[in-house]
Design a protein around this nucleic acid. Structure first.
Lengths: 152, 152
DNA sequence: TATTGTTATACTCTATAACTATA
DNA sequence: TATAGTTATAGAGTATAACAATA
């Protein structure tokens, strides 16, 4: 009666649970999950263009415009025209943006602990290894969480 | 440099990946992920009311109305007024709905195999056990995939 | 001509609130 | 008075398409 084929379902269900909890935490910093994704990426690739960001996020350029509009308004990122190609905007984190990123990383650790709480230390290590292997097998970008998109 | 606190992120990323792939499969049956959730639940609890379905899904009653409207139009479910309480609608799968549910289960198995492909048989069993423990620890409903909702 | 970013617009999904009918 | 279901409406989030500036 337990039935086969429940593992992917469970994975997806737990992933959704974890994402929802994390979204809640980000909101406590005044951020949306999308904001958090941009902060993470800009922390790793400062100076990236909007087009580059769109490609990394798997988003459409117009989506990046409204996203960056909002984050710029809130003082998290700055746009500066590239001197070598004046069509492109170079995106960088402000000090406030870097501060938000640090806070975010702190929350991510608490979040991790909360999500993994039901497991023993040994089980956590097993899980880490298994998820890493799955991620690599499916060629998922370690820095990007699509958050919604179809996988096509 | 690898940094801590990436497990929940990975879980969420992989869950999203799995959900997106499955959504793609359901579309090949002409179903949305929401449809799939209703089919699963109605398969297990035939005759449930719209209110009961809303509670199980964690959705609002008006959401169930449009969902069932659409599925009824497509011949997947029927509404029948309860004879004991004529306010409530009893929801049941049509033959076509049951057929769709069977197809869905077949797809779920293929999906499972594809998602778990990077792992050995032993690793898969480990993963199943770990995810089950996590699910139980967080009291997730084994039949319901919220798909979006905040976890509050 | 092609590309970056922008704007205007529309679509999808979901929720809130007001309403009807039964209880 | 309370509950099941419905309708009408609005909001958030995202995409598509037309456009301006620059290459």
């Amino acid at each position: 009666m337990p039935g086969p084929s429940r593992t992917a379902f469970r994975l997806s269900q737990l992933g959704n649970f974890a994402a929802a909890r994390f979204a809640e935490l980000t909101r406590s910093l005044g951020l949306t999950p999308s904001d958090a994704g941009v902060l993470r990426l800009l922390g790793r690739e400062p100076g990236i263009s909007q087009r580059g960001l769109a490609d990394r996020l798997g988003a459409v350029p117009s989506r990046v415009v409204v996203l960056i509009d909002s984050m710029e308004r809130r003082g998290l990122v700055t746009r500066t025209r590239s001197s070598t190609d004046r069509r492109t905007q170079e995106l960088t984190l402000t000090e406030q943006g870097q501060h938000a990123l640090l806070q975010l990383r702190g929350l991510a650790q608490e979040h991790d602990a909360a999500v993994l709480a039901p497991l023993t230390q040994e089980e956590r290590e097993q899980l880490v290894a298994l998820l890493a292997k799955l991620s690599e097998g499916h060629r998922l970008d370690p820095d990007v969480h699509p958050g919604y998109r179809d996988s096509a």
